[in-house]
Amino acid sequence: MKLGSVAREKTRSGFLAEVRRRSGTNPADCYQCGKCTAGCPLTFAGDLDPARVMRLVQLGQRDAVLQSRTIWLCASCETCTTRCPQEVDLASVMDALRIMAREAGLTQAAREVAIANAGLLGSVKSRGRVHEMMLVLQQNLRTLHLFRDAEKGPVLMLKGKMDPLGHKRGARDQVRRLFENVARMEAAERAASTTPRCACSDEGGEA
């Protein structure tokens, strides 16, 4: 990570402003006390601790943040948001960063999480409700962990916890239209905003 061009990058990319707009909270309020890092149950698993993510957002380090694993490992448990002395809603910042990373196609750092998220939403989109068994099978297929949790299948079937015939469904047509509308509206909103979709693309001439 290069910090030599901090000031220029910050003003040029408007990354901080974009995160602020999308998250509804101001990352500039963070004074780096580290209480989020101290309380985050997933600090051990991430590549950046939460306070570091906030700092890099402040410094406009778009790529470093959007390519990090941490934003995908955030379990949205809201511990950070609850305890932040500066009332920064970090959980919302993480949501905003995940959305921006997905838009920019930068989900390589945590493919499995991205796949799981897409899988659940796919299930909701087609059935109105989640079909858990389908979810597990899809996840294993798409991540090539074919036998992950395989031994649990028979147990779960036996206990009646996995029903291959699926659940009831809810308001499928309404939900499908809802998904389509959201996709259409957000595409329009993105087109209207001049923010570049990926910092990598406008990086070229500067080096």
């Binding site: 006390c33 580290g34 209480k35 989020c36 890092t37 101290a38 309380g39 985050c40 600090t43 601790d49 306070a51 511990t79 305890r83 002395p85």
Partner: peptide
């Protein structure tokens, strides 16, 4: 350098979770 997120009592000690 960091704030403490929480602390709790366990086995006669206080477990302090900071950063």
């Amino acid at each position: 350098r960091g704030r403490v997120s929480r602390l709790y009592q366990k086995d006669g000690q206080l477990i302090v979770k900071g950063a």
